[in-house]
């Protein structure tokens, strides 16, 4: 399988504390891999290393054959869609429409001629059409979650990283998120970080277990 994400011998220290040790991980282009593990095991740190937010001290991390250290966050953002644990961290425009149309003004990978069509389509898929002109500050947590994911997918990423996407969602909302993910499963690869074993089972091709900064096994 052609690997899209390749992590080799990565070690990471934060505030002089070793948080990741000798991490080796390969994920194929359309593979869905999940990482589970207790709080503080290094799952989120690993995902942040992959998208270049957190720096690592040893080893290599490559996206589609290119070393992450050599790429800007903008370049990585064009390839990878990252869903933060807290969607408030990535919604920054005043309205739902602006959040979805934001990247069209700056990301030259997107076709501006299809802008309205793509926005309407994604609003429909994510059940946000009725909120198109609403303020993002007054959305419910579930709506924020859907908007954050929609604004990532409208960028047409090659790979998705979802950090604890089910946190704070009730059963019904989890089901909605699950259906949305199913829709994209055959189109792109996904790295799913979660505590929710039931959710993970529905989507992942394989599941890795992390503990104390190490990958200790595969389920």
């Amino acid at each position: 399988m052609n690997n899209y994400i390749e992590v080799k011998g990565v070690q990471c220290f934060l505030d002089n504390r070793k948080v990741l040790d000798d991490i080796n991980l390969s994920i194929g282009k359309k593979e869905i891999v999940s990482i589970i593990g207790p709080n503080g095991s290094g799952k989120t740190t690993l995902s942040k290393i992959i998208i270049g937010i957190v720096k690592y001290s040893h080893g290599t991390v490559a996206l589609n054959g290119r070393e992450v250290k050599e790429m800007t966050l903008g370049e990585i953002g064009k390839k990878i869609g990252y869903l933060f644990q807290n969607p408030d961290k990535q919604i920054f425009t005043p309205t739902v429409y602006e959040e979805l149309s934001f990247a069209y003004g700056y990301n030259n990978n997107l076709n501006i001629n299809n802008k309205e069509e793509s926005i309407d389509e994604i609003l429909e898929i994510f059940d946000l059409k009725h909120l198109k002109n609403n303020s993002t500050y007054f959305l419910s947590p579930g709506e924020k979650q859907r908007l954050a994911l929609a604004s990532i997918l409208i960028n047409k990423p090659e790979f998705l990283i979802l950090d604890e996407p089910t946190t704070g969602l009730d059963y019904k909302r989890k089901e909605t998120l699950s259906k949305l993910l199913k829709r994209y499963e055959n189109q792109l690869g996904i790295l799913l970080i979660s505590h929710d074993m039931n959710f993970v089972k529905k989507h992942a091709h394989r599941t890795l277990l992390m503990e104390s900064g190490c990958i200790i096994g595969e389920i």
């Binding site: 998208i51 937010i53 800007t72 966050l73 903008g74 370049e75 990585i76 953002g77 064009k78 990878i80 869609g81 990252y82 933060f84 408030d88 961290k89 990535q90 919604i91 920054f92 425009t93 005043p94 934001f102 990247a103 003004g105 700056y106 990301n107 990978n109 997107l110 604004s151 960028n155």
Partner: peptide, 30 residues
């Protein structure tokens, strides 16, 4: 917010000064 904006595929270095100013307002508002 600065990271979230960049992760939308925006490369600050390639933006014009006016575009950078416009984006700054997006950083401030949230």
């Amino acid at each position: 917010t600065y990271i979230a904006i960049q992760l939308k595929g925006i490369e600050f270095k390639t933006l014009s000064l006016s575009q950078r100013f416009k984006i700054s307002s997006y950083i401030l508002t949230p």
